[in-house]
Amino acid sequence: MAVLALDTSNYTTSVAVFDGQTGCNRSKLLEVRPGELGLRQSDALFQHVRELPGLFEQLERQGLLDGIAAVGASTRPREAEGSYMPCFLAGSSQGRGLAHTLGVPFFAHSHQQGHLAAAAWSAGRLDLLDGPFLAWHLSGGTTELLRVEPQGCSVKGEIIGGTTDISAGQLIDRTGVLLGLNFPAGKALDELYRQTDAGPGYRVKLDGLHFSLSGMENQVKKLLERGEKPADIARFALNTVCDVVHRATVAAQDQYPGLPVLCSGGVASNRHLRHVLTEFCQAIFAQPQFATDNAMGTAILTWRAWREGGQV
C-alpha cells in the first residue's frame, strides 16, 4: 500500500507517492518572468492548479496511483498558529477532495515538516524524526535554525536562530538577478562560484544564533558598480552565507551539545555549504533533489500517520 501527497509551495508544484520504503516525486518549477524576483500569490496559485493534473498523469503512467491508502498535503508554511500562505490552498483542497473521493483519510502537514522529513529520509536517517535534533531550513523565503522535537507521527520545530530580515535564498536570488541570471538563481550562482578563487565574503555579525543579511545586498550592488567580475561577486555572496551559517551552527552545537544537525531547503543543495558544514560540523544533508521543494517529505509523514492510525 502507498500514500499520495501534494505540496504547492511558492515556486514548485509537487506530487509524490511513498510505500514505507521507496517513493517517487514529480515536480514542476513555477514560471517567473526574466528579471523578476518572484511571484504574486495569485499567480502561484493559478500555476499550481494548472500544473497538478500533469503531475498526476505522470504518476498514473508509472502505475503508481493504484491502491492509495491515504492522502496528505502541505497546508501551511510552518507548524505554528497563524501560519498561512494562499498557494498551499491548491494542494490542500485537491488533496482533501481526492481523499473524500477515494474514501481514505487525509492528513495535513506543514511545508517545513515536509522539508525535514524529506531531508532525513533521503540522507538515510529517518530515525532522526524520533528524537530531538537541530535543523536548518534554508530556502528562498526561509533561513531558520530549529530545535526539533517529535510530535506524534511528525515533528515540530522551535526557531532558535537564523536571519532577522532577508533569507539566504533571497540574497542569493537577488545577487543572481543583479548579475542577469534567471530566478531562482541558486544553481547558476553555484556554477559561477567555481569559476574563480577570489577571497572570502563579508563576516556578518552573529547575535547569539541570529544574524542579518539585508546589508549584504547593498555590498553586492557596490561590487557590481565597481565592475567586479560576476564570478567574484557570486563567490562573495555565497561565502558570506556559508560563513555565517557555519558560525551559527557551531554556536548552536555548543548550546545544544550532542544533537545532530540536519540541513534542508533549496539553499542546502549548495556544494560549498555542504562541504563546510559536513566537514566541520558533521551536518547531515538531504540529497540535492530532495533539498529543494518537494512532496516526498509530506508523503513520508502521511505514511507514518496512516501506519500508526494517528492524527496530525
Rank of each mutant, 00 (worst) to 15 (best):
N270Q: 03
T298Q: 15
P260C: 00
N270L: 02
R274P: 01
F285R: 15
I284Q: 04
T278Q: 13
V261H: 00
L277W: 07
M296I: 05
M296C: 07
A291I: 01
L273E: 01
S264D: 05
T278D: 07
V276M: 09
V267T: 05
L273V: 02
L259N: 05
S269M: 06
S264L: 06
N270C: 08
Q289M: 14
T292P: 03
G297K: 15
G266K: 12
F290E: 00
G266E: 05
D293W: 15
Q289E: 15
S269L: 00
T298E: 13
A295C: 12
Q289T: 09
G265R: 11
F285Q: 13
F285I: 10
C281W: 01
P260Q: 02
D293M: 15
A283S: 08
V276L: 14
S264Y: 11
V261C: 07
D293T: 13
Q282C: 03
S264F: 06
G297L: 06
G297P: 09
P260R: 01
I284F: 08
A283E: 06
H275M: 12
R271P: 05
L259R: 01
G297V: 12
S269H: 00
C263V: 13
T298C: 15
Q282S: 06
Q289W: 06
Q287M: 13
N270D: 04
L277E: 01
I284H: 00
A291M: 01
F290Q: 10
L273Y: 04
I284E: 00
V261F: 03
V261L: 03
Q287I: 03
A286F: 12
G266A: 13
Q287G: 08
L262H: 14
M296G: 03
G297S: 14
F290C: 05
A283G: 09
G265V: 08
L259T: 04
L262F: 11
C263W: 11
P260G: 00
F285C: 06
P288W: 00
Q287K: 15
D293H: 09
F280C: 14
L273N: 01
P260D: 00
S264E: 05
Q282V: 02
S269Y: 03
H272Q: 15
Q282W: 03
F285S: 10
F285D: 08
L273W: 01
G297Y: 13
A291W: 10
E279G: 06
A295D: 09
A268W: 13
S264K: 06
L259E: 07
L273G: 01
A268N: 08
V276R: 14
V261R: 06
T292R: 14
E279Q: 12
S269I: 02
G297M: 14
Q289K: 15
L277Q: 04
P260H: 00
I284N: 00
T278R: 15
G265H: 02
A295S: 04
D293A: 09
Q282R: 04
G266R: 12
A286T: 09
P288S: 11
A291P: 06
E279R: 14
V276W: 03
A268E: 10
V267P: 09
G265D: 06
A295Y: 09
N294D: 07
S269W: 02
V276H: 06
E279V: 13
Q287S: 14
A283Q: 09
H272I: 11
A268H: 11
P260N: 00
A283N: 08
Q289G: 12
N294E: 13
T298D: 13
E279Y: 09
L273P: 03
T292G: 06
S264V: 08
E279C: 05
F290V: 03
I284W: 04
F280T: 15
F290H: 11
L277I: 08
